[in-house]
Nucleic acid binder design. Structure first.
Lengths: 155, 155
DNA sequence: TATTGTTATACTCTATAACTATA
DNA sequence: TATAGTTATAGAGTATAACAATA
């Protein structure tokens, strides 16, 4: 590649590594930050046994009581079978409930349980604390800019 | 949550869904964009059977010939056992080689094979095309800003 | 003792395909 | 026919723990 890493006589390569064309790739930086954010989140919410993806889904369920699995799957862009697995795991932890709907018996209406409610009430402040710490190096202005640009890319 | 989604009499919830406190969480937007980027990448490089993470690792190997598995693992922040699996898969596709190092017989020096070289030469332009399309809605200025902010967060 | 790498095990995330029940 | 959900299967990504070889 254009700028090879330092090589020693024996053929070993020393740190820091050269990143060549990766430096200019947005996807690369996106992946790194996402990975760093994930690990910071995991360390901070160690005792809660939840990932950023699971938390996002749980909040969607909390904000949209009775939503169906298909609607949730479309919202987070995964297959229905994948979404079903997430709900299975939440249900086995008794965080959410599947309820029958009288008007359409194909549908499972998903609701947060009271245990799920308490869980979220405890976890959300911790997530916000993690967020403040993780984004601490950016000014409030920069944080807003970053979210604005990310929204445009996701939209 | 503060702004529940629209509910119909039967208890069903209609799209679009309310996102409540997620809207302000950087981690949430990061995950969404990362997921969108991943899916765009996968669709664009459909025939290549490679993910953004694998591509990143392959470029690191290309740029740092002879690098050890431990150094690579530290660089991308995964466990040695995880990194070993990535190398296993690359090796079974004959994209990289593990070579012995005379000066330290514990180490496997990782090198791109000539097949790996050709693979990267074909794939990198496609990745850049994907990137241009994916980031097309952002101005050149916005793209630079975004990368700058992401770099600060990852560092 | 510390480091490099491998193996075994396990869990999450994810998709595809085939299926049942219902609309 | 089309939609909602489940099940079976499979593979990627990831970690932990225990291990062998080497430094």
């Amino acid at each position: 590649m254009e700028t090879p890493g330092t090589s020693e006589p024996g053929g070993a390569t020393v740190e820091p590594l050269s990143r060549g064309p990766l430096e200019k790739l947005l996807v690369y930086h996106l992946r790194r930050v996402q990975s760093a954010a994930f690990q910071h989140f995991a360390a901070y919410l160690n005792h809660r046994d939840i990932t950023p993806g699971q938390l996002g889904l749980l909040v969607l369920i909390a904000c949209n009581p009775g939503v169906s699995q298909s609607v949730l799957a479309r919202e987070i862009k995964v297959e229905r079978s994948t979404l079903g697995e997430f709900i299975d795991r939440f249900e086995s932890r008794q965080l959410v409930e599947r309820r029958q709907v009288a008007t359409d018996r194909r549908i499972h209406a998903i609701h947060l349980s009271s245990k799920g409610r308490r869980f979220l009430d405890q976890v959300l402040p911790e997530v916000e604390a993690h967020e403040r710490e993780f984004t601490g190096t950016l000014s409030a202005q920069d944080q807003r800019t970053l979210i604005r640009l990310l929204k445009r890319l996701a939209g």
